[in-house]
């Protein structure tokens, strides 16, 4: 049942030009950045050769690429997640799901997985782009895998929060702006906090993603993203359940 709903979400996404345009624009931006990084790498390569323990191509190209992909994800999720529930409310199509023999949890998980499938496509394209270096260079596959995992976890957190905010309103645009605001807030929350051990630092998505980006897969960071995702999925279920009462 969850997969039926997820498949339908993915189908409606690709039925509108939005999904295609987002994928195309993102690929262009990422490719441009990727080529820029390669260019920069080639200029500094002679100097790197002189170093005793030089950073590899993965550190110099793939890591910044995933850093940018994470930033892009922050801007891509709101226009995709906004429709998930808000639009069903607006078009009064929620009754189809509510009167069908499916639970609210299944509805929310289906919608979440539908969006995740789309984001996974985007992550997959980014990974493929990095993987193309494999033909001509030594690639640190573990670092690449760490980055992919980090980006997937980040995407899951974004999708869950976006889904929750979409469940609060019946106006997709309000959901999109609210979601973008919340993401940016979570992203930059550590700037004002000087003390690296402070709570604000700990809440920052940026900080947790950075360790994955550097290739450090720490349980604490993974747990942060997983708890974050689960929390907002549960909140979304509760919010939707309240519609019936």
């Amino acid at each position: 049942m969850i997969f039926t709903i997820a498949a339908k979400e993915l189908k409606t996404l690709f039925a509108s030009p939005l999904a295609w345009i987002i994928l195309a624009v993102l690929e262009c931006l990422l490719a441009w950045f990727f080529l820029g990084q390669i260019d920069a790498f080639l200029t500094v390569q002679p100097q790197l050769a002189a170093l005793a323990n030089p950073p590899g191509v993965t550190e110099l190209i793939v890591t910044p690429l995933f850093g940018i992909a994470a930033m892009i994800m922050l801007m891509v999720v709101p226009p995709l997640s906004m429709r998930l529930i808000a639009e069903e409310r607006r078009n009064q199509t929620m009754a189809l799901l509510l009167s069908a023999p499916v639970s609210i949890t299944e509805i929310i998980l289906g919608k979440f997985l539908g969006l995740m499938a789309f984001l996974a496509l985007f992550i997959g394209l980014t990974a493929l782009m990095s993987f193309s270096l494999y033909s001509g260079a030594m690639l640190d596959l573990e670092l690449l895998a760490g980055n992919i995992l980090g980006l997937v976890l980040l995407a899951a957190s974004f999708a869950a929060l976006g889904l929750f905010i979409s469940s609060l309103t019946s106006h997709p645009i309000i959901a999109a702006i609210g979601t973008l605001g919340a993401f940016l807030g979570l992203w930059v929350v550590d700037i004002s906090a000087r003390d690296p051990d402070s709570l604000l630092h700990y809440l920052s998505l940026l900080k947790h993603f950075e360790s994955f980006n550097r290739g450090v897969i720490a349980t604490a960071d993974a747990a942060y993203f997983i708890l974050f995702t689960v929390l907002f999925l549960v909140l979304a279920v509760r919010r939707l359940d309240r519609d019936r009462l």
Partner: peptide, 26 residues
């Protein structure tokens, strides 16, 4: 159930929509 406003997804074709409704109802 047919509510007052039919719960239709405008972006789907009739076949896709009915298939989805059938799957939802197991």
């Amino acid at each position: 159930f047919l509510p007052e406003t039919p719960p239709l997804y405008r972006d789907l074709t009739v076949d896709e929509y009915l298939r989805f409704a059938a799957r939802l109802h197991r």
